[in-house]
Design a protein around this nucleic acid. Sequence first.
DNA 1: ATTCTTTGTTAGATTAATAAAACTTTATAG
DNA 2: CTATAAAGTTTTATTAATCTAACAAAGAAT
Lengths: 226, 226
Amino acid sequence: MNAYFCGMNSLVEENYLKALFTLSQDNNGEVSVNDLSKHLDIKMPTVTNMMKKLAAKKLVHYESYKPLRLTEKGKKEAALVIRKHRLTEMYLVEKMGFGWDEVHEIAEQIEHVRAPEFFAKMDELLNYPKIDPHGSPIPDKEGRIEWNEYSKLSDCKEGDSVIVTAVINTSDEFLKFLNSRAISLGVRIRVEYKEPFDNTMIVSYGQHPREALSHIVCESLLVEKI
Amino acid sequence: MNAYFCGMNSLVEENYLKALFTLSQDNNGEVSVNDLSKHLDIKMPTVTNMMKKLAAKKLVHYESYKPLRLTEKGKKEAALVIRKHRLTEMYLVEKMGFGWDEVHEIAEQIEHVRAPEFFAKMDELLNYPKIDPHGSPIPDKEGRIEWNEYSKLSDCKEGDSVIVTAVINTSDEFLKFLNSRAISLGVRIRVEYKEPFDNTMIVSYGQHPREALSHIVCESLLVEKI
DNA sequence: ATTCTTTGTTAGATTAATAAAACTTTATAG
DNA sequence: CTATAAAGTTTTATTAATCTAACAAAGAAT
Ligand SMILES: [Mn+2]
Ligand SMILES: [Mn+2]
Ligand SMILES: [Mn+2]
Ligand SMILES: [Mn+2]
């Protein structure tokens, strides 16, 4: 009767898929119930339940006590949700004038809107962007992602000159910190000195001849070497 | 824990409020459970249940077997949902290039997004519009509505010249019909002849010197006399 | 190897939104 | 005024998403 009768996933299912996709990136495709539970702030039994449901829908490989893995179908559907999220973020920044630190929560909701024309229109108005405002790739309409091979600033050596291409941590707080240091995508940074004790980096860029960036900050910045 | 713990209404509650508001317009504030049930395509027992819930939240005056009425609080919250809906429709048409016949279903979903900044931004980018793409007034931030005193085209007399200011029926089919006749808001129409038998009107406007509009069409067009 | 801790599952319960079936009240038509 | 029809309600049940408490498996530590 309603719009959710066919092969569509619910808003809740979409959030699980997205979380599985994201978490599986840094663990060669495997995710623990515990991690997923913490990431979504949902108790473990609820997650187990949902995994059985997603397994029944052929979106997740589920076996008791084994790590969770998305199926190919699951990966595709997750990527399509991420596509909607990132397109939305890009639209909010480029066409509506929001800051890159203001769009995540709004996109978190709009990503669940069931209106393909709406996302297609944003895509068109943005001229088919390949990355979102945080430098993350936007999956294409088939859910394919172009993985860019960038390195972390923390892996650079003294004397390296690099361009900031993406942020890994997209939390408001981190983005506001970057704003306060005038660091944004495209900024060209030179590593002046790397403190052996705690890996803090002294870097220079733009009008900033001597800025200290902690290891935790440097690990969250993806850069392209030049 | 989640975002819906405080005074917020759920998506479902918002749709009930909106329906109550709309239906109560043409019946001096009163709505029957039956009408609401049909309008929302939800069975009557479900509606009765929800009315008790909304009554507990002081949004609806509910007494067994009596017509439903929104409280002042209910009217305000309904108007604020309608505000989000109409602002969205206006944004979709004015800023994204959708047709007036394509935006209702998208707005039906986006109206439930919980992000005041988002709607405030649309409002700003649209320069605080007073009407939506169908000529309906957009309630202000306090939920106040400026009721325009327009008449139906069907109430006009032979020889009257009028400007189309709003459509009452905002269904896709009706809007597409108007598109096919090149009738849109702002078009100046002259009533050439009114058939006494079935109230069909022969009108002229723009490049159309002799167009026949059935009574049902004329009843759905609001006009301003000049 | 045995114990303890962490992780995961099962069982049972709750809340929101819905419907079907049965019943009651109000309205309408003879 | 009844008899019937329409509208509204109550009761019971279902589904999705969640939780707590109790239990079981896997992994770590001694
Ligand atoms: Mn985001
Ligand atoms: Mn989301
Ligand atoms: Mn509409
Ligand atoms: Mn809606």
